[in-house]
Design a protein around this nucleic acid. Sequence first.
RNA 1: GCUCUUGUAGCUCAGGGGUAGAGCACUUCCUUGGUAAGGAAGAGGUCAUGGGUUCAAUUCCCAUCAAGAGCUCCA
Length: 628
Amino acid sequence: MADSQEKQRKTLEERDQMSDLERLRHSTAHVLATAIAKLWPDAQFAAGPPVENGFYYDVDLEHRITPDDFDAIEGEMKKIVKENQVFEKEIVSRAEALKMAQSGRLAALGDRDTPSVFKIDLLEEIPEDEEISLYKNGDFWDLCAGPHVGRTGNCKAFKVMSVASAFYKGDASNPQLQRVYGTAFKNRTLLTEHLERLEEAKLRDHRKLGKDLDLFHIDEAVGQGLVLWKPNGAVIRQELQNFIGEHLVRQGYSQVFTPHIGKLDLYRTSGHFPYYADSQFPPVIEKESMKALADEGCGCGELSNKLESGEVDGFLLKPMNCPHHIKIFQSNHHSYRDLPVRLAEFGTVYRWEQSGELGGMTRVRGFTQDDAHIFCTEDQVKDEILGCLELVKIVLGTLGMDDYRVRVGLRDPDSSKYVGDPAKWDKAESALREAATTLGTDFAEEPGEAAFYGPKIDFVVKDVIGREWQLGTVQVDYNLPERFGLEYIGSDNSPHRPVMIHRAPFGSMERFVGVLIEHFAGKFPTWLAPEQVRILPISEKFVDDAQAVYDQLREDGIRVKVDSADEKVGAKIRLAQLDRIPYMLIIGAKEQELNQVSVRHRDRGDEGALSVVDFREKVVAEIASRSL
RNA sequence: GCUCUUGUAGCUCAGGGGUAGAGCACUUCCUUGGUAAGGAAGAGGUCAUGGGUUCAAUUCCCAUCAAGAGCUCCA
């Protein structure tokens, strides 16, 4: 937030550290800008930095750039590359730079009627003691601190990728610019490889696979961001819940169930209403109040005031589970001997995410957290955090998800959005930091990433198109115990305030399964696969034998189906492969005679014949061990 | 929420001012076949919704709803 402007401007030191690839991409951004300036001389350029997979340049332009323009843009870029213009650095005085900007000369091919408005703005942000440099390639002069490659001829392997819009300087109150994205690599081979990787990634997109494999459905009639789990998806979710459930028992959690709504007063106490009203579904107003209000002809604004003041009461779809769990904790008196109390629930919550934010399973409006709240003493905080991290590690380890990063979210010292005593924050932050060091993986401390009520550790993974998603989370909370006046009786026979820890190893079932679909590209390990075994009789004659094997496997709880369609076995195999079924059992005359099945694995191929008993044992063991 | 793009059969998509087409899936028939597609026939659509322009709109225009990309946001 506060640092978004700083992010726009790299320090000189950071610029010196720009990698060769970033330098190349940044230079290609200038080539892009040169091409756009040729095609549309009235273009006003803002910033054009390298980014993770390429670069972009922000431009304000009457003409709406569409993918249809890409050929023309790339054509111009190729000419500029071919001309092999030198990237020339020139140090100028502030006054000179300003003069050029006033005459529209910056980020342009020549003087213009209008000043280079964004460049003037950017000039003003450059610290007094910093030198001001221009980079020139051909007639294109741009205000730029560099660094660049030597010549435009170095920028051969590029591609214009997409165009989107972005707020100037990342501030939603600023005008929106057209952001043209491109990518560039050292050579064509690397570029082609990158483009192929993107194509492959599209194939494992969870939204596509969710449809192909019949895992989930989002229906307009139900609502945006509200996920319907279809039978296949439900199997995966249930297996994951069982898996977590087993570990909860081992770690001394108690399972609870709570309703999906709670009174507004509950959230007034927690501080979530009306503070977070914008990101909640509107309250459900009590019947009697509703009627009275309607009779009064109460308007919308009035209603909202009355809700805020508490004059009218109602219920809120729960945006989180904490208050309910707190009330469970509070329904008993607690001695220090009882602590920690660990309450776990797969709790469904509802949040009014902005419509532009919704997407697939990863950002939704109703989702189920594998939530738990731990109420403990100050002394227990560290061990409890360790326990939580242990659980996250077990989860990610079992699923083979090792491509994640750990983020320790600390408060932003300059912001006032945080509640609670700074001394307690310090304590919580150091507890988390200490716990994170025991993790054995690198972690990054990120100021400003804390929740408003406390610091946290997040496990972040990337989806197929490189977007980061927060999955598992462990958060310390000194705030809610205060607001609800939680207490336990200490060994000194006087009341003390417990500390709360929120934790969710998956984060939400929706997001986690979405990410998991992409992680496995739909090829779930046998224990998670909606259909674990498919039996393929060679012809109609062997359907009865297939059915007999089916019955035996079902006894062991194996999820199995028989494909009795009137098709050749090749076609049946193809279908089973497309459905990503781990095991195919082929039954024909040979197998019938020996009471065997021919085993084919979706990745390993033909594995030869086994007796039904042997196959059963093998698969049951594989499932029980949750092997990958 | 903002900008842009998109919305045609269950799925993937083509088409285009004169009320629609392919492949896969589905149904039926022929075929009884050994490790990624055997053949034939059939059924299936108010072309997202609501307005407007027009003799005529699924096609053009506007709005709404939804999806996608990016930005902003994410207790």
